[in-house]
Simulated assay, not measured.
Amino acid sequence: MRYIVIGAGAVGGTIGGRLFESGHRVVLVARGEHLEALRRDGLGLTTPDAGLRRLPVPAVGGPQELALGPEDVLLLAVKTQHSAELLAQWAGRPVAGGGTAGERLPLVCAQNGVENERLALRRFRRVYGMCVWLPSTHLEPGQVAASGSPLSGVLHLGRYPAGLDDTAERISADLAGSHFAAPVRADVMGWKYAKLLSNLGNALEAVGGPIEGELRLALLDRLGAEGAAVLAAAGIGYPDEAEQRAERGDRVRLVPMPGTTRGGGSSWQSLARGTGDIEADHLTGEVVLLGRLHGVPTPVNGALQRLANAFAAEGREPGSLPERELAALLEPSALPRALR
């Protein structure tokens, strides 16, 4: 199998780099300065076990630079707001022996949120969901850092909308030999909905800074309560926190690495890099959508969705929302006592 990683940022770069190190054929797909750095210097991958090394992983700017074959696996690792455009670019590309990528090749959605698989299934016949628990950072062109140890991440994998097959098992085996745990699950979307709940703090961290202290923890609790309420109203099941902890165990511990600063999660990193967009519409925004569909109020998720989008559009610094504006997101009765 050859892995074509569409989006070689923090997640895609780590997965692609680890697969390449373990002897698999990998192509990274990137753009702009990141692509230039990958082509010039290779992928700079930093992990606790081996520090920084430069990996000569082939890199391209798009599907027009590749000839696709029947053993290729497309691994989509971009933010959801970029998925539709890229799916359209790749689906119609010819595959050696006949047919197109959309007809013949497996496409794995290694992304947060739950919308990517549905978008992909419009254009690709063979779609796989991947629930990504992989603490990683991409702030500089050509470089990614993954701070998990002894494994880099836990990547639940399964067919979309549900089920298992030999392809999922083969991908899982390759990942398991590349510093990942990769459990194959017929109900992978349940794991992705559970991850969605844990990602609701991304917008809060992006606009308000590290989630610590009474106010931010109170906001995080409200985000989670709204998320759990809409999933219950929609009849969507997911593994509880105890099952998630048991699955991860101590296989991925965060390890500080000299010269590497994690800073924040994926939404924080989008603001720090000044990309001009953010994934809030598909994280907190997913809760807002489900709330509207099922008649459940989601005021805090909605407010943070709007704030995160404004921060991205206006180029504001991550974590710079004043405390009083954060406090205004909660009703007075829900504020920590010291802030009432």
Rank of each mutant, 00 (worst) to 15 (best):
K192L: 13
H82R: 12
E286V: 04
R40H: 14
L151W: 00
A168V: 01
L55T: 06
D240I: 08
L220G: 00
P256K: 04
T167H: 04
V154W: 08
A10M: 08
G44Q: 14
V288L: 04
T14Y: 08
L321A: 14
V73E: 00
E331I: 00
L204A: 03
G177T: 05
V108P: 01
V57Q: 03
P210K: 15
L157M: 08
A77E: 10
Q244M: 15
P48G: 06
E331V: 01
S83C: 15
R2P: 11
S22T: 13
V127E: 03
G148C: 10
L330M: 07
Q269W: 01
R159G: 00
R292Q: 13
A176I: 05
G264L: 03
R262N: 01
R245Y: 05
V188S: 07
Q305C: 09
E169L: 11
I15G: 02
A88M: 01
Y193D: 09
P299E: 06
T275Q: 12
G23W: 12
L197N: 02
V60H: 04
V60Y: 01
E331K: 14
D174S: 12
P141D: 02
R118A: 15
A313T: 02
D187F: 00
R251Y: 00
M130E: 06
A67P: 00
A96K: 02
P336C: 12
A8K: 04
L330K: 09
H138P: 00
G17Q: 11
P258A: 14
L35S: 09
L329W: 05
Q244E: 15
L38H: 08
G274D: 08
P63V: 08
R253F: 03
I4Q: 06
L293E: 13
R53E: 13
Y238H: 15
A84K: 03
S270L: 01
G102H: 04
D49I: 05
S147K: 04
G61V: 05
L55W: 05
A229T: 10
L321Q: 12
G315P: 05
A206L: 13
G17N: 14
